[in-house]
């Protein structure tokens, strides 16, 4: 389907390109349309959303719906919980995963293969197999409805270790060897030389961990019961069930809940796509 595929004169090629755009634009409408409808719904009154025939544009733009979200839900607290949960997990993973990953990639110690095999086995198993005991631990510690309950198990990741190990393995050896000859110890070499070189890997891990923490539903649903202790995902899910058919309010809330990740994605598009698609990480 490259250039050559459109052989047979300029006009045929132009028709081909036009047809391509028609298909791609139709697809794009299907992808963006729902988001557009979400925004328009969020700006209508409740009665306008449930009045037939449906209006396309809001009769009067109800920006106040966005304020109502803060008044009717503990939205500010949920937002804060989400940010702190994502930040806590990500910072811890950057430290713990990079240390373990470097040791696995570059250092020799007894039992390294066995240990790495155990790490890999965690990667192969669906998360439902950890969840019940995690819940029991969180409950025994009295961490239900707490920030540490949301953060702590997510501070450790076999996936993150595996991802960063790949980056460390790809680094050239020479610089590390030179530092070793200058008398640096293993940890200094890791901290001063290998870590800065592995920045693209650290960025990928950051993006994935933040996104995954932000969007995950089942774990927070299990370890929080009080809306003001929930992150946005569990909070919105619970609120949809409990109160509302007030979709203008729900849409305003979910726009604000998803906006940070969408903005981050638009700004860091290339890194997001590489990080997500090429590590096979999703959910």
């Amino acid at each position: 389907m490259r250039d050559g595929a459109m052989a047979g004169g300029r006009s045929t090629r132009r028709a081909g390109t036009a047809a391509t755009h028609v298909v791609l634009i139709a697809g794009a409408v299907v992808m963006v349309g729902p988001f557009l409808w979400e925004v328009l719904t969020s700006l209508k009154t409740f009665s306008e959303t449930t009045h037939l025939p449906l209006t396309f544009l809001p009769h009067r733009w109800q920006w106040s719906n966005y304020v109502r979200v803060f008044e009717q839900l503990p939205f500010r607290q949920m937002f804060l919980n989400t940010v702190l949960m994502a930040a806590g997990r990500t910072l811890a993973q950057l430290v713990f995963c990079s240390m373990a990953a470097y040791a696995f990639a570059r250092m020799r110690f007894r039992g390294n293969n066995l240990l790495f095999g155990l790490f890999l086995s965690v990667l192969m198993v669906p998360s439902q197999l950890f969840l019940i005991p995690q819940y029991v631990i969180i409950q025994d510690l009295g961490w239900v409805n707490t920030l540490q309950g949301l953060i702590v198990p997510g501070m450790f990741s076999a996936f993150g270790t595996f991802l960063l190990r790949q980056f460390f393995l790809a680094l050239p050896h020479d610089v590390e060897e030179a530092a070793r000859l200058d008398g640096a110890n293993a940890f200094q070499i890791f901290l001063r030389i290998a870590l800065p070189l592995a920045r693209p890997g650290l960025l990928a891990l950051t993006i994935l961990t933040v996104l995954w923490s932000w969007n995950d539903l089942m774990y927070p649903l299990v370890v929080t019961t009080d809306p003001s202790a929930m992150p946005l995902s569990a909070g919105l899910a619970t609120l949809q069930g409990e109160h509302f058919t007030d979709y203008s309010l729900l849409m305003a809330g979910s726009i604000m809940a998803t906006a940070p990740m969408i903005v981050a994605f638009v700004v860091l598009q290339r890194h997001f796509i590489q990080g997500i698609a090429f590590t096979g990480a999703k959910g």
Partner: peptide, 29 residues
């Protein structure tokens, strides 16, 4: 020897965390 010691220190936090929250839970489940 000193390198080996560093290696154990560097894998320790992740090993403990994964054991407590992931590996042992598989057996518990």
């Amino acid at each position: 020897r000193p390198e080996r010691m560093w290696a154990y220190l560097m894998v320790a936090p992740m090993t403990i965390g994964l054991s407590v929250f992931y590996l042992w839970p598989i057996a518990q489940t």
